[in-house]
Design a binder for these strands. Structure first.
Lengths: 335, 335
DNA sequence: GATCGACTCTAGAACGTTCTAGGGCGGGTC
DNA sequence: GACCCGCCCTAGAACGTTCTAGAGTCGATC
């Protein structure tokens, strides 16, 4: 029953409309070379047969695929937001997106290889964990844009947030509130942990607070933040900047169970503006990445490479934005 | 520089290995009809040239596409988990997945039409919002499996959780703890809100608690839960079951700000086992859907239809599971 | 020693589209 | 009236693969 009938092709439409296959193709692509009258007639037939072009055949023949492959991770709520932006950006310039997910049981290599078989024209990788060497090989075959990660390799384009600046914003905000004793909980071995840590250090020095510099090893998850909080228990600072929002919530939880009041006793700043950080419950002050700009630039960069343009800048660094919510305030003494 | 060279094709491999194109095809597909020796030689050449099959050409020629189209929504953390399961299930039986996302600015119709052009063999829709009539038309063209939603239409297969039973579990758990005054905050006009509400009603009656039945209109988001909490303020019950986790956290927030202690003063049960409900901070007792089973069954159902089997059951209903965490406990009197 | 079957391999058509080359045809210019 | 140009249209090759039909070789069976 279902699926019994073959889907209509250009040939079917052509036969019904009494024209050649080539002409129907012209009409469907909205290409010049058909009179208004026939155009109308062909479209009418196509609509009646519910004709849908076959993108496989289309792409196969026309070489240029106007298709961008995107690799994203299912664990990152952040990636979902980025996908939204990428769809918008791609649609605006007439490109299609094809998605391939990295899951706990499906690694990046598998995800990428699927996209290569689909012959997309370029790859956009969201926070790739692949070693630089492998990214370089890949970039030798087709344009590759890495997002949210630095790649010291001239073949690979990079679009990322200025994480250093993100921590400047966080620290400056705390200093403006009157804090001096500000610690940082880093991301351990995670991508961009080093840069955020360095951003913290620079900002502290610029504010003349090198005496207060203190970095605690953290990580990606909630439990990492909790562990860091316990480590800070002995000599609690008046404020903490944390590698990401998830870690920050873990830290917050321990602080509150210890009877500390946030932000009166201690202020906390996260990173990412994750969806849950907006929950009234958590209400976390955090550093937000400019998703729309990043998405637009990533797509633009990929397309420039596809079109063979010699791209001048290989790396685009976008300034982040501080989102002030309820977990930051003046320290007790300063009130 | 990049993209200058053409990707190698079967013909290239054939030429280098000194065999016919057809034979290389046989080897690549692991089909019978090639000697071990040549097989070895061809594979070696393919590896050397870094040959990647062109899935477009492959699918175009071979008609059967072994390709499942999946439509998911970026706003739902739950969909990410489901994707993980779908990838596993599809891989196990040799199918590929192709993803199309619904975003705030890309509707379901667009997402589906993209997949139709890719000529996938069947569609798996996660919580589709499309009207039944449209789903029916679609199902006339290719097998369609809807997940997490009822569709009263015999062409469309359905795989969903037994939401009624989910609320039975929640209510029974609370009753076992000693609660009698249990209210329900529903999902408003959202899919499956009606079924969960009815599940609550049935469970209350089965426990002889019809006198305590109380349903408050809620919704999908946090603010809906917060609103419901304010509405309950006058005569607070000792326990609440909520449409989903997001709404439950909004409710929790208002309760706590009102000075109520959870679970001592009031117990709360959510629905979905969303990733954030696991955060130590929120630690929500909730009803979990059996993601792996759902994913496996959805893929199996789609494939059966593709293979033309006459499927007996059109609707599969999976029992959920209660995850007990920190927001439920005995009521004050019962301690 | 002819016939058969199994095995390995190949030539060429086919999938649905786009692209290249060119064929009518009407009307303007010399 | 010969020429050229622009417009609308068509035939047929091409994209990279799989599929069908069949060709060649070898060894075993009659």
């Amino acid at each position: 029953m279902t699926g019994g009938e073959r889907r209509p092709t250009l040939a079917d439409v052509a036969a019904q409309a009494g024209v050649s296959v080539a002409l129907v193709s012209i009409v469907m692509r909205d290409a010049p070379g058909a009179s208004a009258a026939t155009r109308e007639r062909v479209l009418e037939v196509a609509r009646r047969l519910d004709y849908q072009p076959d993108s496989r055949a289309r792409l196969l023949r026309s070489g240029q695929s106007r298709l961008l492959g995107v690799v994203f991770g299912v664990q990152h709520p952040f990636h979902d937001d980025l996908l939204t932006g990428l769809y918008d950006a791609a649609e605006k310039i007439g490109y299609e997106l094809t998605l391939s997910a990295v899951t706990p049981r499906r690694d990046e290599r598998t995800a990428i290889s699927g996209l290569l078989q689909d012959r997309c024209a370029a790859l956009v990788l969201l926070g790739p964990q692949l070693p630089t060497a492998e990214l370089a090989t890949l970039a030798g075959r087709l344009p590759v844009v890495a997002m949210m990660r630095t790649v010291r390799q001239r073949q690979v384009d990079v679009v990322r947030t200025d994480d250093g600046r993100g921590l400047h914003l966080a620290v400056d905000h705390l200093v403006a509130l009157g804090h001096r004793d500000i610690a940082h909980v880093d991301g351990g071995r995670w991508l961009s942990s080093a840069e955020r840590r360095q951003g913290y250090r620079d900002a502290m020095r610029r504010n003349g607070l090198q005496a207060y510099e203190r970095v605690v090893t953290g990580g990606f998850g909630e439990e990492d933040g909790a562990r860091a909080a316990r480590e800070l228990r002995e000599h609690p600072p008046t404020a903490v900047t944390v590698f990401n929002d998830l870690s920050a919530t873990g830290l917050l939880d321990v602080l509150r169970r210890d009877g500390l009041s946030v932000p009166a006793d201690i202020s906390v700043v996260g990173y990412d503006d994750s969806s849950f950080s907006r929950l009234a419950h958590i209400d976390l002050t955090t550093v937000a990445q400019d998703i729309d700009t990043m998405a637009t630039l990533a797509v633009a960069r990929a397309v420039e490479r596809i079109d063979g343009a010699q791209v001048a800048h290989r790396e685009v660094v976008i300034p982040p934005r501080l989102v002030v919510r309820g977990t930051t305030g003046p320290p007790r003494g300063a009130a």
